[in-house]
């Protein structure tokens, strides 16, 4: 079992390294497509974490939804719009620099404090018994979703419906109106007018 534990830890470290590395890369990269690929790496490593945590269903859904759907859309949009690399621009809001320093200081202080507090906390967290857990299985999640969480589930479905309608409205092609006018001579003037999303 020690070997298995060690193996698990090793995998964890590898995944964590992948996640953090990809995350940093995502922020650092100025090419959006690289950033997107880095983010996919993060998602996949997160899926690995979920597997380690005994949540295969969530892991699968993570890949399907994030990697398979959302990021595909993002990549698609990046390719469609042929997004350029970010150009460095002079910083326009100078006050952000001290704000950032201040925020970072606070963040570090809080992190240190929280780590200290957790270390001092008498609460002991049980180890995950991922191998024998029934929690992450499809059946338990399905039962939970359709009993206790039925209302949130349905609300989510309505939210998605709204998102579909909204996305279609936002992205649909501009409607072209043909305005036909007749002057005194009976001559017709046709004017094409584009009805854009922002004109609606």
């Amino acid at each position: 079992m020690i070997i298995a534990d060690l193996f698990q830890t090793l995998i964890w470290i590898v995944l964590a390294g992948l996640a953090i590395g990809s995350g940093v890369a995502m922020v650092v990269q100025r090419n959006p497509l690289y950033a997107a690929i880095s983010l996919i790496g993060v998602f996949i490593s997160f899926a690995g974490f979920y597997l380690l945590l005994g949540a295969p269903f969530i892991a699968a859904v993570q890949v399907i939804v994030y990697a398979g759907a959302i990021m595909v859309l993002v990549v698609f949009v990046i390719m469609l719009l042929n997004v350029e690399e970010e150009v460095r621009k002079p910083l326009r809001l100078k006050f952000l620099i001290p704000a950032a320093i201040f925020g970072a200081a606070i963040l570090f202080a809080q992190a240190a404090f929280i780590i200290y507090s957790v270390g001092a906390s008498p609460v002991r967290v049980p180890n995950a018994d991922a191998a024998n857990s029934q929690i992450g299985l499809t059946k338990s999640i399905g039962t939970g979703l359709f009993t206790d969480y039925l209302l949130p589930f349905e609300i989510t479905s309505i939210l998605i419906l709204m998102a579909i309608v909204g996305a279609i409205t936002l992205a649909r092609r501009p409607t072209v109106l043909l305005l036909v006018e007749e002057d005194y001579d009976g001559k017709k003037h046709v004017e094409r007018r584009t009805l854009k999303i922002d004109n609606i």
Binding site: L93, L96, A99, A100, G103, I106, Q110
Partner: peptide, 11 residues
Amino acid sequence: SYAAIILLGAL
């Protein structure tokens, strides 16, 4: 900058 302000609030 909005994001930064939100962050400050969260902090």
